[in-house]
Structure formats: structure tokens, C-alpha cells
């Protein structure tokens, strides 16, 4: 019988909870899901196995922690190999289910053999100065992460660009797609001209795109797969061809446009 308030009971609870959270919480709430589920991957299986096979007191806490992580990683890899060999896709449900089963089995075996340890929570005395140092350190880490993970504006001299693309429409339709991607660092206004078999066919513009924005249109071209030339100019220099694309033999497999 599993005794409550032991380390192995806690590990079993954590493993079950992680499995349930992984099943119930959507991926969009990774902030919640990751801290709840990652112990199952990185610590719980190893802790259960190591505690089950070593006698109580045989390992120092640091050794137990190290072996728990290493054996958890090994259990993750071996369970993945096993599932792969059996032809089971490595999705969350079977994989985490297998790891949970391993954790529960090892913990139950350890409990049955008297390897569980009572949970003892020791209070650690922390002086005022020490608490201040810890709080200041934590604040610095939050500041470092905030600064580090915030995209910065471009250094002076950074070159933006624009792209023009031209593709046959998918599924053999008698049409082509033309598009523009603005990768300039500022909003830019464009004109797009399309020639069909050398004759002017369509003109689009002015098209104003914000940085990172895209524009595309489908153009009916009729039968015969004519040569299509597309050119892009900017409002800053409308007479110059800034980019050009050519579709000659239409031998392009397109997924979507």
C-alpha cells in the first residue's frame, strides 16, 4: 500500500497530475502546462526508478538528484525507441502514458520494498540581508530576461528589402499568382506590372505595405501557359524596375498561393 506523505507517493501524484494536465490543458497555455508537465519528463521517472533500486540512505541528495535527471532522460529515450519500434506515433498521449506507467510501477515497487522516505520539510533560516540579495538577484534575472527577449530596433545601416514573387496557380488552373513582401524597415508603396506573352496585361498599385506585410493577387492568363513577366517598382522611383520575376515553362509544383 502506498503511504501518503512519502516521497514516492508525491512522485506518483506528480506523474498522474502531469499526465492529466497534458491531456486537459491546451498547448496555448504553455506558461501553466510546462511547469506542471516537465517534471514528469525530467525528474519523476528517474526519481522513482532510482529510489526503488537503492536502499534508503545509500545516496546523498545531490547524487539522488543527478541520477534522477539522468535516468529520466534515459527513460524518455528508451520509451521513445520502444514506441517507435512498435509503430506507435510519438504523440503526447502514448508517450506520457508510458512514462507515467513506468513511474507508477517503479514507485509502487519501491514502496512495497520499503524504499519510500517520509516527506520532511525543513525550514531554512534566511537573514534579512540574504533575503535582500535573493530578491535583488531575482529582480535582475527578470530584468535580464525582459531586456534579452525584447526585439530591438535595427542598427543604423541595416538594409531592408522587398520581394516580388510569381507562381502558377495550384491545381492546374489557368491563372498565376503574383505577390509582394515588404521587408523594408518602413512602410513602402509599390506598383506591380504584369506582361502576358510580352504584352501589358495588368497593373496593380499604388500598394502601400507596412513592414512585414504581404500582398498577392491571382491573374487569369487563359489557355496556353504564356510567358509571364512581373515587375515591381517603388513610389520612390517609379520608373526603375526594382524587382522582376519570370514564369517561362510553368514546370513548378505549387501548394498554395
Amino acid at each position: 500500500m502506498v503511504k501518503p506523505r512519502t516521497d514516492l507517493a508525491l512522485v506518483m501524484g506528480l506523474a498522474l497530475a502531469a499526465c492529466v494536465f497534458a491531456a486537459l490543458l491546451p498547448s496555448s497555455v504553455a506558461v501553466l502546462r510546462a511547469p506542471l508537465c516537465l517534471p514528469l519528463v525530467l525528474v519523476a521517472p528517474g526519481y522513482a526508478v532510482v529510489t526503488a533500486i537503492f536502499r534508503p540512505g545509500e545516496l546523498r541528495t545531490s547524487e539522488l538528484l543527478t541520477l534522477s535527471i539522468a535516468v529520466s532522460i534515459a527513460a524518455t529515450l528508451i520509451s521513445a525507441l520502444l514506441l517507435d519500434v512498435l509503430g506507435v506515433a510519438l504523440t503526447a498521449a502514448p508517450w506520457m502514458g508510458l512514462l507515467t506507467a513506468l513511474t507508477l510501477a517503479a514507485a509502487a515497487w519501491g514502496t512495497a520494498h520499503g524504499r519510500s522516505r517520509p516527506l520532511v520539510f525543513r525550514s531554512i533560516p534566511v537573514g534579512r540581508a540574504q533575503a535582500g540579495a535573493l530578491a535583488a538577484g531575482l529582480a535582475l534575472l527578470v530584468g535580464a530576461a525582459t531586456l534579452g527577449f525584447t526585439p530591438m530596433s535595427a542598427p543604423s545601416g541595416t538594409r531592408g528589402t522587398s520581394a516580388l514573387w510569381l507562381l502558377p496557380a495550384p491545381q492546374g488552373r489557368q491563372a498565376a499568382c503574383v505577390g509582394v513582401i515588404n521587408e523594408q524597415l518602413h512602410a513602402t508603396t509599390y506598383d506591380v506590372s504584369v506582361l502576358l506573352a510580352g504584352a501589358p496585361a495588368r497593373r496593380f498599385g499604388p500598394i502601400t505595405l507596412a513592414p512585414g506585410a504581404t500582398w498577392s493577387r491571382a491573374i487569369a492568363v487563359g489557355p496556353g501557359r504564356p510567358v509571364i513577366n512581373a515587375s515591381l517598382s517603388t513610389a520612390a522611383d517609379p520608373s526603375a524596375v526594382y524587382r522582376s520575376a519570370v514564369l517561362q515553362d510553368w514546370n513548378v509544383a505549387v501548394a498554395s498561393c
Binding site: 530591438m152 535595427a154 514573387w165 513582401i181 524597415l185 518602413h186 513592414p211 513548378v252
Partner: peptide
């Protein structure tokens, strides 16, 4: 500069944008 902030969003380097375009349109 790998990801830069611009008005209303961020920009990846042109080669990343081209690669993403290839995956999206050509498969």
C-alpha cells in the same frame, strides 16, 4: 540583429522570409 522591431511587429532576415515563402507556397 536576428529579429528586429519595426512599426507594428518584427522582421526576420530576408533569407528566412524567402525560406518561409518557399515552404508556404511550394510546399
Amino acid at each position: 540583429p536576428r529579429l528586429i522591431a519595426v512599426t507594428g511587429g518584427t522582421l526576420d532576415p530576408p533569407a528566412v522570409v524567402a525560406a518561409q515563402w518557399s515552404g508556404r507556397t511550394l510546399g
